[in-house]
Structures are given as structure tokens and as C-alpha cells.
């Protein structure tokens, strides 16, 4: 089997004040997997995400992406391979137009001309925003901006798409539209979220992070049905939602 897309081994990290956020995280994500990262607020989920593309470096332990260690030498390659979509699209979209913003990442990778244009077009089409390339981000609806934020990362053709709270602040229709789009993408996904029904729909595997450690890892249906594990780590299903009432997602067929 080839090297995992993401590999974390014994990753430790602490805030500048010494408060530990990650206390030895081990995690493997393989090509084609769709993994949810669950955990209460303050569990270290965002800190973990920022380790995946080298924004933060571990104090101890090792992070590698497709076999490459995350270090100064491989930083640009790592950032191409790990596409992070941040929670607030206004943080992600900073260029005057949607098209320029989607071009920003691939341009940093050295793409120009027709190749760059094709990437931008393809990425915007993938999220159903192909007609909005010339619009300013602040003229789009929130749901549209979230989709463009996904496109800005897809344009870099990442090995793994990392989504931080993809469904937050979306109305139900936008939430479903984004799910349809994510479902169609042929890419490895790591999704950080509190939206458990979304996880059951989109990710066949769930990892529970609590107080800087991985405390649960398994098929989403089983993790969500494990009442003891859920209760111990402040994870709660929405009222009336029974994960056993629907068939869980199985590993994607497109590989």
C-alpha cells in the first residue's frame, strides 16, 4: 500500500503559555477515505488542522503528507497537497473577484496562461459557480462564498481536502447543496465538524479527538452509536436523530 495521504505520529503541541493542546496524536488517513474529526470545543481540532499544512509545527512527533515530512523544504508541496478550507469564507476570499481568488493558489504554484484559466474554470464548475468568476466575493450569498472557498482549494488539485466546519451558518438548502458537491468530488476528505448528521451522510469513518488525544476511531455509524464514548467527550446527537435509522455511508466507489 502507498504512503498514507496524512500521517501523524506522536504529535505534541502547546500554546505559547505552555498549555498543551495536542498530547500525542497518532492518525493515518489513506487515499480516497472520507474522515470526520469530531470533538468538543477546545479539543485541539483546529490546532491539528494547522499542523497538516505546516502553519504550526509539532514540538514532538512527526507529520507527513503523502510520505513527505512537513518541513521548510517541502512546505509549498505540502500546501499544494493539503487544501484547507477555513470556516469563515471572508477569511479565505480576499481578492477583488471570485476568478482572481480561485487563481491565487495555482498561481502561487507557478501556473500561468491557459493552464491557469482551465484550472480556475474547472474548480468553479465543480462547485457550481462557473458563471460567477467576475463577481466580487462580497456580492455573493454566504452559501455561494463557502462554495467558492472550496473552489479556491480545489484549484490547487490537492490530495486531501480539509474542511473546517463546512456546514456552519448555512441554511438547510445551502447545506444540502454543499453536501451534494462534496459527495461528487473525487478527493480524500478530512472534515472537522459538530454537525453529526452531516458526518453520517458524508464520511464513512470518524475520529474523536478529546483533550489533545485520539479517543475514538471507527466507522461513523458505530462511533455515533457508542453512547458511552459520545457522552464521555461532550458529543451529542441532535434531538430525535438516531444514527441506526439510516444506512451509513460506505467507502466511496470512485477511486
Amino acid at each position: 500500500m502507498s504512503a498514507p495521504v496524512l500521517e501523524l505520529a506522536g504529535v505534541h503541541h502547546a500554546y505559547p503559555d505552555g498549555h498543551p493542546t495536542l498530547r500525542g496524536v497518532d492518525l493515518h488517513v489513506h487515499r480516497g477515505e472520507r474522515v470526520a474529526l469530531l470533538g468538543p470545543n477546545g479539543a485541539g481540532k483546529t490546532t491539528l488542522v494547522l499542523h497538516l499544512n505546516g502553519i504550526l509545527r509539532p514540538e514532538a512527533g512527526q507529520v507527513s503528507v503523502a510520505g513527505l515530512p512537513v518541513d521548510e523544504e517541502h512546505l509549498l508541496e505540502v500546501r499544494r497537497r493539503v487544501g484547507v478550507v477555513f470556516q469563515d469564507p471572508d477569511d479565505q476570499l480576499f481578492m477583488p473577484t471570485v476568478g482572481q481568488d480561485v487563481a491565487f493558489g495555482p498561481r502561487n504554484l507557478g501556473l500561468r496562461g491557459d493552464e491557469l484559466r482551465a484550472r480556475v474554470e474547472h474548480a468553479l464548475d465543480a462547485v457550481g459557480m462557473g458563471e460567477h468568476a467576475d463577481r466580487a466575493p462580497h456580492h455573493l450569498s454566504f452559501g455561494q462564498r463557502r462554495r467558492v472557498a472550496v473552489a479556491t482549494v480545489l484549484a490547487m488539485q490537492p490530495d486531501v481536502l480539509v474542511l473546517d466546519e463546512p456546514s456552519s451558518n448555512l441554511d438547510p438548502a445551502s447545506r444540502r447543496e454543499l453536501a451534494d458537491i462534496l459527495d461528487r468530488l473525487d478527493v480524500t476528505v478530512l472534515m472537522v465538524t459538530h454537525d453529526l448528521p452531516y458526518v453520517l451522510q458524508l464520511c464513512e469513518r470518524s475520529v474523536v479527538l478529546s483533550e489533545g488525544r485520539v479517543v475514538g476511531d471507527g466507522p461513523t455509524g458505530e462511533v455515533l452509536a457508542d453512547e458511552a464514548l459520545m457522552a464521555a467527550h461532550r458529543l451529542e446527537l441532535p434531538y430525535g436523530f438516531d444514527p441506526r435509522s439510516v444506512p451509513p455511508r460506505t467507502r466511496a466507489t470512485t477511486q
Binding site: 502553519i55 500546501r79 487544501g83 477555513f86 477569511d91 480576499f94 491565487f104 502561487n108
Partner: peptide, 23 residues
């Protein structure tokens, strides 16, 4: 703080100090 988050998101997409706005 937003400025810091925007910068972080730019770094995540391989920002190395140059932006082309005149394309």
C-alpha cells in the same frame, strides 16, 4: 484578528509574498 486569519488562509494556499492583481 481577521487580518491574521486572512494571512493564515493565504499561507495555506502557498502565498510567498506576491499577488498578481493586474492579470
Amino acid at each position: 484578528e481577521r487580518g491574521e486569519r486572512v494571512h493564515l488562509a493565504m499561507l495555506s494556499r502557498g502565498f510567498q509574498g506576491r499577488v498578481d492583481l493586474g492579470e
